[in-house]
């Protein structure tokens, strides 16, 4: 039987041929896997977060293994918006996948300046705001309701592109933060970023990350992230891109059932470069086996009792 299940999906006005996306910071400059992955299985690529000025990043070691996951403290290493636009973006555009550019600034002015530059570039399909970084006063934007409202609001005013706000899981009430981002004008939400963690080498007594702490991702965060996504999808009407620890099609289905409209596969690709492709075809099979025609038949369809 031909597998006719339709995996097209619309998110924030973007029509995507696949609901499987690569989340920010987990897909190099984009073309690294061209011999190892069928890029046709990807709906969009979210770039490594770009900042206004180049950032050197944290010293190594920057990654440490965790039980079923990874800690990372890359420190937003990137070449800065200027070189990103002139050198990196043209190469990413050649992959013929919609490109969502992730940006981070130290204040609303910097976010608006970055958006001003991206507005003019045809190859940019949408902008994602990485809000899990400290502002000039060392306050984490996504953890501060006032800052979140201000920055998303001003970014929305500046942007001609669909705007996605990426939420941090590390807040007392993620549903409230989601409502604030929606109210300030976000066209979609990404949930969630990594969870802060650390690890210590008991032989040397040194932290395993040079930065001491870092973000935890991979299968070990899936139950935590899934709960966040469920809270968020209940709270807002705008689409939610869900992710955190997705490694199999079943994992992805859980996120759809919890209400996500698209999913991201990051860390799983470190271990298995073909992960996104397997998840894409696994989703098709899941729908076909149940004679379902589209993702709409599972999105938000968790059945409680």
């Amino acid at each position: 039987m031909a597998n006719k299940a339709d995996l097209n999906i619309e998110v924030a006005g973007l029509r995507l041929r696949s609901p499987v996306l690569t989340p920010s910071g987990t897909f190099g400059y984009g073309d690294e896997l061209k011999d190892l992955l069928d890029y046709g299985s990807l709906g969009a690529l979210i770039t490594k977060t770009v900042t206004f000025e180049p950032k050197k990043g944290n010293p190594p070691p920057r990654t440490a293994e965790a039980a079923s996951g990874v800690l990372n403290s890359i420190g937003l290493q990137n070449v800065g918006i200027k070189r990103f636009v002139s050198e990196k973006l043209p190469k990413i555009a050649k992959l013929r996948i919609p490109v969502i550019v992730s940006i981070a600034g130290q204040n609303s002015g910097e976010y608006s300046d970055l958006i001003g530059i991206l507005n003019e570039i045809r190859d940019v399909s949408a902008v994602e705001l990485n809000l899990s970084c400290p502002n000039l006063n060392k306050r984490i934007i996504s953890q501060d309701a006032g800052l979140l409202r201000d920055i998303v609001g001003k970014a929305k005013t500046a942007s001609k592109k669909p705007l996605i706000a990426k939420l941090s899981p590390q807040v007392a009430d993620i549903a409230e933060m989601a409502r604030i981002a929606e109210g300030a004008g976000a066209d979609a939400l990404s949930a969630v970023n990594t969870f802060q963690g650390m690890a210590i080498d008991v032989k040397t007594r040194k932290p395993k990350l040079a930065n001491v702490t870092g973000g935890l991702s991979g299968p070990c965060v899936k139950p935590l992230a899934l709960r966040c996504v469920w809270e968020v999808t209940k709270a807002v009407k705008i689409p939610v891109i869900g992710g955190g620890g997705i490694s199999t099609a079943e994992d992805a289905v859980e996120y759809f059932l919890a209400g996500a409209r698209a999913v991201t596969v990051g860390t799983a690709g470190f271990v298995d470069p073909g992960a996104a492709q397997k998840i894409y075809s696994g989703l098709k099979d899941y729908l076909a086996e149940r004679k379902l025609e589209s993702l709409a038949d599972i999105i938000g369809k968790m059945e409680i009792n």
């Binding site: 190099g28 896997l33 290493q77």
Partner: peptide, 15 residues
């Protein structure tokens, strides 16, 4: 260097 992916995806293994 410590490596998570080995394929250039994570930017972890820098020197």
């Amino acid at each position: 260097e410590k490596m998570a992916c080995g394929t250039g995806l994570c930017q972890g293994c820098v020197t």
